[in-house]
Computed example of a mutant assay.
Amino acid sequence: MKVTVVAGNPKAGSRTLDAGKLVASAVTGSTADSVVDVIELGPGLLGWGDDTVVQAVETVADSDLVVFASPTFKATYTGVLKLFLDQFATGEGLRDVVAVPVMLGAGPAHALAPELLLKPVLVELGATAPAPGLYLADTTYTTDSRIAEYVERWGSVLVAAVTARTGF
């Protein structure tokens, strides 16, 4: 199973990236094969055909399971993640990818954001998202039990979706 983490935080090496890696490890039992820290793609995100961006898109599209992580900005996912997702063709760009939408925020006010805002765009791009999105408190995600509880409830569903698609 090829696993990738995509972090759409305007700050490189962010808590968002860390949380995405933790979720990927908890679901699969091992570290992600690839990481795309979107902000590191730089101005190539503003156009089409940048070699680094194309390679990142191919890495994500060729993955079996992708954790898409974003901080909550203005009650939704970040513009930098939107710029990256715009690089994928509608309906086909994430075909055969099992997606896990994850968002971090300061409090519970936006707890439905991953499910209501991030998950629909991933599905529109062709991903399968068989489990609800996961919302994490940005100050406690490393110490609370939210990731473990999510994986206990939904980890087998995510792995089964990958297995059904890949046959292994």
Results as ranks from 00 to 15, higher is better:
1 M>Y: 05
6 V>I: 13
7 A>I: 00
9 N>A: 09
13 G>R: 01
15 R>N: 15
15 R>M: 10
16 T>S: 04
20 G>L: 07
22 L>P: 02
22 L>A: 15
22 L>N: 10
26 A>D: 08
26 A>F: 06
31 T>Q: 12
38 V>K: 04
43 P>Y: 12
49 G>N: 03
53 V>Y: 06
55 Q>C: 03
56 A>K: 05
56 A>F: 03
56 A>I: 07
60 V>E: 03
68 F>C: 03
69 A>S: 15
70 S>D: 11
74 K>E: 06
77 Y>T: 10
81 L>E: 13
83 L>Y: 08
83 L>I: 00
84 F>I: 07
85 L>F: 04
85 L>M: 10
86 D>I: 06
86 D>Q: 06
88 F>M: 04
90 T>A: 12
96 D>W: 04
96 D>T: 10
96 D>M: 07
98 V>T: 14
100 V>P: 03
103 M>E: 11
104 L>A: 09
108 P>V: 13
110 H>M: 07
112 L>R: 07
113 A>L: 00
114 P>F: 03
119 K>H: 03
120 P>A: 00
120 P>Y: 04
122 L>D: 03
123 V>F: 00
124 E>Q: 10
127 A>Q: 01
127 A>G: 04
133 G>K: 10
133 G>F: 13
136 L>H: 05
138 D>R: 11
140 T>H: 08
142 T>H: 10
143 T>C: 08
145 S>C: 07
146 R>Q: 15
148 A>S: 12
151 V>W: 11
152 E>A: 15
153 R>S: 14
154 W>H: 15
154 W>V: 05
157 V>K: 14
161 A>H: 11
165 R>N: 12
